[in-house]
C-alpha cells in the first residue's frame, strides 16, 4: 500500500476541475478534480449517472465521439496537457480505457481481439508475442478460448478479453470502467484479483470506476466518491471503508447494522431537497 507522501510525490494523471457538457446542453461533470498516482489503484465510486464513465471518457478522449465536450478545466498526464490528443495518441502515451460493458469485437476470435490491442505498438513482433504470453499467463482461460469468436464466449471471458486487449498496448495507466458489471460475485473477485496482481507485478496503474463500492474499496489504494457530477469525498481506501457516511450510503451499513432500504432512501431524498 502506498502512503500519503508517496501519493503526493508521483502523479501520473491529474484532472483539474473539469466540466463536461454533452450535446452543448447537458452538464454532466461540474468541476471534477482527481489525481492518479504512479503504481496505484484509484477507485472512482458513485451511483448511476454520477459521472464516473464520463470522467474516464474525458481522460481517454472518447467523449468527442459521443458529442461530449470538456468546457472547463484541464487534464494533465505526466505534467503534459492531453485534452486535445486523439484516443490513439493517448494509447501511444500509455493511457488506455477498458470500456464499460466489455465491447469485445464479436466476430473476431479472442486472440485477434487481443492482437488489436497491439495496434499502436511499433516495437516488433517479438515484443508483441511476449505481451500475448503475458496476457495468457494472467488469464489462462483466454488461452483455452483463443480460437473462439469473442461473441460466443461468456461474460466473464469477454471482460477478461477486454482487459487483456488493453494490456497488449503495454499501458502505464489503465482506465477500467465497471469491470464487475453483470458478473457473478465469484468472477468479480477473480477479475479484481488479477487487476491487483497486474498492479503489483507489472506496475500498471489503474483508475477504476465502479458501483460495487465494497469490492472496489477492498482492492483500491485511494478512492473518490462522485455524486451528480461532483466529488463529494475522497481519501485512502481504508479510511473510506470506515467512514460512517460511506458505510451508510454505499455499503448499506448503519450504526445499527444493516438499515432498511426505505429509510435510506427517504433520508437521502430529504437531504437533497434542502441542500
Amino acid at each position: 500500500m502506498l502512503d500519503d507522501a508517496e501519493l503526493q510525490a508521483d502523479h501520473l494523471l491529474e484532472v483539474n476541475n473539469i466540466e463536461v457538457i454533452y450535446n452543448h446542453v447537458i452538464l454532466v461533470l461540474k468541476g471534477v478534480s482527481l489525481t492518479v498516482p504512479k503504481g496505484g489503484i484509484t477507485a472512482l465510486l458513485g451511483g448511476n449517472g454520477a459521472g464516473k464513465t464520463t470522467t474516464l471518457k474525458a481522460v481517454s478522449n472518447l467523449l468527442h465521439s459521443e458529442r461530449g465536450e470538456i468546457t472547463k478545466g484541464s487534464i494533465l498526464y505526466r505534467g503534459e496537457r492531453v485534452g486535445n490528443l486523439s484516443p490513439s495518441d493517448l494509447v501511444k502515451k500509455g493511457v488506455i480505457q477498458v470500456m464499460e460493458g466489455r465491447h469485445c469485437f464479436e466476430h473476431l476470435t479472442i486472440e485477434e481481439n487481443l492482437m488489436t490491442g497491439a495496434y499502436t505498438r511499433r516495437d516488433g513482433k517479438a515484443a508483441i508475442s511476449d505481451a500475448l504470453d503475458m496476457v495468457y499467463t494472467y488469464f489462462p482461460r483466454l488461452k483455452e478460448r483463443r480460437k473462439s469468436q469473442a461473441g460466443y464466449t461468456s461474460g466473464g471471458e469477454q471482460q477478461m478479453c477486454a482487459i487483456g486487449r488493453a494490456l497488449m498496448s503495454k499501458p502505464e495507466t489503465v482506465l477500467l470502467d465497471e469491470p464487475s458489471m453483470g458478473l457473478a460475485p465469484q468472477l468479480v473477485e477473480e477479475i479484481f484479483g488479477i487487476v491487483k496482481a497486474l498492479n503489483e507485478n507489472e506496475g500498471v496503474s489503474f483508475l477504476l470506476a465502479e458501483q460495487n463500492t465494497n469490492v472496489a474499496l477492498r482492492f483500491a489504494h485511494y478512492g473518490y466518491i462522485l455524486e451528480s457530477g461532483r466529488i463529494v469525498m475522497d481519501g485512502p481506501a481504508a479510511e473510506l471503508r470506515e467512514n460512517p457516511d460511506v458505510k451508510e450510503f454505499y455499503l448499506g451499513m448503519g450504526d445499527q447494522g444493516r438499515k432498511s432500504f426505505r429509510d435510506v432512501r427517504s433520508y437521502r431524498r430529504r437531504k437533497r431537497w434542502l441542500s
Binding site: F105, L108, N113, T116, S169
Partner: peptide
C-alpha cells in the same frame, strides 16, 4: 494488421477507438 483493424472497426467503432485505432 490493417485488415484486422478493419474488421475490428466493422464490429465496434467505440471499442476500436479505445484501443487506439
Amino acid at each position: 494488421k490493417t485488415g484486422r483493424a478493419l474488421r475490428a472497426v466493422a464490429d465496434d467503432h467505440q471499442a476500436a477507438l479505445s484501443v487506439g485505432i
